[in-house]
């Protein structure tokens, strides 16, 4: 992860509001999984731990995908016939 200094992972401070700039930076780092990767590589992860983590992530992704589909289905609003099944 070597990039040009002060171009990558940089946020400008606006109106001397350091806190919100930090928040934006941390939010981006967290979202991209950079902080997670940093924390994970502090100590060696044994192969069995690696396997378990990958399997867990897979299951979670499948569950999330299906759940998102289900929520979308339940919350669907714009139907051609607003009262399907009613006379």
């Amino acid at each position: 992860m070597r990039h040009v200094a002060f171009i990558a992972r940089t946020v400008f401070v606006q109106n001397n509001d350091v806190e919100s700039a930090c928040k934006v930076l941390n939010r981006i780092l967290g979202k991209e999984g950079i902080l997670e990767q940093y924390r994970r590589t502090r100590y060696y992860e044994k192969p069995f731990q690696f396997r378990r983590r990958i399997n867990f992530e897979r299951c979670k992704a499948i569950y999330n995908e299906d759940m998102e589909r289900k929520i979308k289905f339940v919350l669907r609003k714009n139907r051609l016939d607003p009262y399907p099944g009613c006379l």
Partner: peptide, 12 residues
């Protein structure tokens, strides 16, 4: 005055 904040954490 702080102009910018950069993260330079080494992540591989």
């Amino acid at each position: 005055n702080i102009a910018s904040i950069t993260d330079n954490t080494r992540v591989s």
